[in-house]
Write a protein that binds this DNA or RNA. Structure first.
Lengths: 215, 215
DNA sequence: TAGATTGTTAATCGATTAACAATC
DNA sequence: TAGATTGTTAATCGATTAACAATC
């Protein structure tokens, strides 16, 4: 059913489809056509049909798509039902907020450990977990085999920490550090979230808009 | 010097160039060729030269680029020296972490106000600012004319809040809410940061890697 | 059946890469 | 000058859009 290699552009749209379908489902909508969905989402009907057909024919001619079925198909494609184990490294402001703010279980993960090397943070309760000393990281990984590490650590620590974690069997990184954790390892997935880059981009675009107005 | 409309793909790479150049600058590197930079960043030399030439000819044949000059040019292009006024809406875990974690001033902004409608949060000090009641938002905007609003509010509130803020003169949104704040307004820039989508994408990609290994 | 809408192929558009003459 | 490397044009690649036959 899952066809070969789907482009990253398509993959990045899947969670968005998922969100919109969830809303439709909550609103009690039973069926939707690619045309109606495209209007809601601000893209073309063609693109929606192309995207979905990377994974299978989920629609029905003359009818459209069943909202519930499509929602569940996309959940399955994304693998959100898996509850892989995740650990957080770095229990600073951002790290703690991510723990408290994110709904991991609906995104395919379960947070099983929080680590920090700062003795002042060790023992602190964040949500239902207490911060552990990073010294115990290796033992923890041997025992629990986490799949994913969330990096909320300083830039300087990111590269070496990631290397160590790969040796401990980590399969994916959700990287909030300012270090570009890319391509370095094979068979390991990386999502870099550069909040600073996003803010800089916003700055640029506001400047552009202002320039455009002055003309 | 700034040429017409630069594609969003190019714009999104600018902050990354900026980061790498800052590192080079800190390391004391004086000059760099597009070839060397491309190797460091994991892209092609062609792309770097194309990207930079959207804004001007910053290099010199036979020499390459002067790191300090290029760094400053990109700062200028992004407009990071402007210190536009930003306000935060929603002082929950994520909002507070963003205040404490982000270096606004090096990204072209200055945080001038924090608002929340929860009376329990009003008065709370977050960094150097105290959380204000959302009821005072309009007055505040009239007086201070903030340019940007950071939205860390629930999905349900996002749409209407954004509409109100546009009326108060907001020019850009840094949107962390689960609502897709797009295209609704003309002349307003929006950066949607969907952390949940990023996590879902990571989930998908780990599953893909695992499948690939089993073959 | 007639109307609607998909799945899919073909056409277009844009972004990336390659090539090379210009030039420091 | 000879070597290096840019700026820029042309070629390629991939992603998006359009079109339409298949079919519910």
């Amino acid at each position: 059913m899952a066809k070969g290699n789907v482009s990253l552009s398509v993959v990045r749209r899947l969670p968005r489809y998922h969100r919109f379908l969830k809303d439709l489902l909550n609103a009690g909508t039973v069926r939707i056509s690619s045309g109606d969905l495209s209007a809601k989402m601000g893209l073309t009907a063609s693109q929606i049909r192309q995207d979905l057909n990377c994974f299978g024919g989920f629609g029905q001619q003359g009818y459209g798509y069943n909202v519930k079925d499509l929602y569940e198909e996309i959940s399955k494609i994304l693998g959100l039902g898996k509850h892989r184990k995740a650990i957080l490294l770095g229990a600073g402001n951002l790290g703690r907020a991510i723990v408290l703010h994110m709904d991991f279980s609906s995104r395919g993960f379960e947070l099983v450990g929080i680590f920090d090397s700062n003795p002042e943070l060790v023992g602190l309760k964040v949500g239902s977990l207490a911060v552990q000393d990073s010294a115990g990281l290796e033992d923890f990984c041997r025992q629990h085999h986490p799949d994913v590490a969330i990096l909320c650590i300083p830039k300087e620590a990111a590269k070496s920490t990631a290397a160590v974690l790969v040796r401990y069997g980590i399969r994916g990184f959700w990287n909030f550090s300012h270090y570009d954790l890319a391509l370095d390892y094979d068979g390991v997935a990386v999502e870099n979230v550069h909040l600073g880059d996003s803010l800089s981009t916003l700055c640029f675009r506001i400047n552009e808009l202002e320039k455009a107005e002055k003309e």
